[in-house]
Amino acid sequence: MSRSRTVILVRAAVLAGLVALLEVLCRVGIVDPMAVLPPSEMVGAMIDQLRSGELDESMVQTFSTIGLAFGVAVALGTLGGAVVHAVPRLRRAIDPLLASYYAVPTFIFYPLLVALLGLGKLPLVVLGVLSATPAVVISTLAGLDGVPPVLRKVARVQRLGRARTLWLVVLPAALPRLFGGFKLALSYALIGVIAGEFILSGSGLGYSISFAYQSFDSRAMYGAMLFVLLVAVGANTLLYVWEGRLARRRLRT
C-alpha cells in the first residue's frame, strides 16, 4: 500500500514539475511566450472564457454531438457484436475487416462525409460513430467469448428463457469487457468529433480552438485547449475509476 502511495506521490510530483518547468521556461523566455503561454496564464484564460460564457454554445454543441455519437456507437456496436457472435461464418468473414479497421485513419473519410451530408452536426456524428463502433463490436465479441460455458449451462438448468438468460447471466458476465469497449468508444468519439470540428466546421469547441489559432488569439486558443484536455482527462479518469469499482464488486460476489 505504501509503495503504491509513493508511486502516486511521485507521479503527481513529476507532473507538477513538468508544469513548473514550462512556466519557468516561458517566464525566462527560453520558450517564446508568444508561442506558448505560461501554464498559469492558460488557467487564467480558461477561467475567463468559462466565466464570460463565450464557450457555452460551443460546449453544448460539442458535448451533444459526442454524446449522440457515443450512444449510437454503443447501441450499434453491442447489437452488431451480438449478431456477429451468433453467426460464426459471418464472424470469420468479418474478422480480417475488424483487424485492419483501425489501421485506416478513419478521419480521412471526414471530407467525404462533409460532401455527402453537408457541413453541420450530422457528418460529425457519423464520423464519431464510424470511429467508435468497431471498438464496441470487438469488445462485445471478446466479452461474449469470455462467458464461461458453465454459466450458460446453469441458465439452462434453471430453465431461463432467452431474454432472461441474456439479462441475468450473459450480460453481467460479459460486462467488464463490454465496459472496456465503452471506455474506448467514448475516447474515440471524443477524438473524432473534436478533430472534425477542428479541421472543418463552423461551430463547437474544436472549431473555437482552430478559429482562435487562425486569428492569432493565443489566449483564447490556450484557454479552450486546456478546457478540452481537462474534460477529456476527467471523463477518462471517471470511467477508469468506475471500471475499477465494477471489477472490485465482481470480486466480492
Binding site: 507521479r11 520558450v31 517564446d32 508561442a35 477524438i191 473534436i194 474544436g206 485547449m225 478540452v228 477518462n236
Partner: peptide, 29 residues
C-alpha cells in the same frame, strides 16, 4: 519498475487525449 509505475498512467492518459487540439501549439513551436 518504479519509473514504469510512475510513467505508465501518464502515458496512457496522454494516449486517450484528443491530440488534435494540441496541433496549433506544435505549429507555433
Amino acid at each position: 519498475r518504479f519509473a514504469g509505475d510512475v510513467a505508465e498512467p501518464i502515458l496512457a492518459g496522454f494516449y486517450t487525449v484528443p491530440k488534435v487540439t494540441l496541433y496549433p501549439v506544435v505549429l507555433l513551436v
